[in-house]
Amino acid sequence: MKRDLQIPTLRPRDWSTQPAYVYPPYKSTVKRGPTQPLVPVKRALEQLAAPVYGHGAVGPLDHDLTRNAVKNGEPLGERIVVSGRVIDEDGRPVRDALIEIWQANAAGRYAHKVDQHPAPLDPNFLGAGRCLTDKQGRYTFVTIKPGAYPWGNGAGWRPNHIHFSLFGNYFASRLVTQMYFPGDPLLPIDPIYNSAPAGARGRLVSRYVPLASDPDFALGYEFDVVLRGAQQTPMENRE
């Protein structure tokens, strides 16, 4: 039997929107970024579906960082709600994307054992969360606005940011990125933010949006993420 199938193939990584592997202003890239040209691959690999995460992978409080690690009270800092959509390049929602976030606490300290910045830990805040996007590709996290902190790349401090890890519907659409806050004076001098090409880096900055519900509880920020999407390519299939 022969029939024509519309085989979805993934659009390529658009390197005009992505940082280079070696970007000397961010010093660690110099010894860690690959230097040989990437080897192109045939389509087979691009069609690999991403792992399927059941809703069992996400606990009921995983999306609420103000509650998922409390020991004896509430975490300190400005409460914020971070929400948005995960879409592909055509604006189609990416459903059931696994979003994992991690961040510093309000004082700019990570709960990580390696973080030596002498700012206080918050016993009621771990700074890790996750959720799955819904049918419209929407997600919501409740958290605390992360503080800035100095880092060993010269004299600078990192702007306030939340780390985002996303698994969409394809293995190759994997994305790890960082969300920044509008108007942060550290952005123009941050090597990591500025590693993204000028025309694309603004996509990393969230928008302040007064919350429609619960405006007295938290500040609202919106952050949409665009993942590589499928394009339909006609292909003959022999069965």
């Binding site: 992505q18 390049e89 996750r130 780390h163 994305l175 990125t177």
Partner: peptide
């Protein structure tokens, strides 16, 4: 194609408690 891809950023040194929490305790 209407939207540009979101740029990648480094996973940084402190991913463990978010992405591999059980492995790191």
């Amino acid at each position: 194609m209407k939207y540009g891809q979101t740029p990648s950023q480094t996973v940084g040194p402190y991913f463990a408690y978010g992405l591999t929490p059980e492995q790191y305790g």
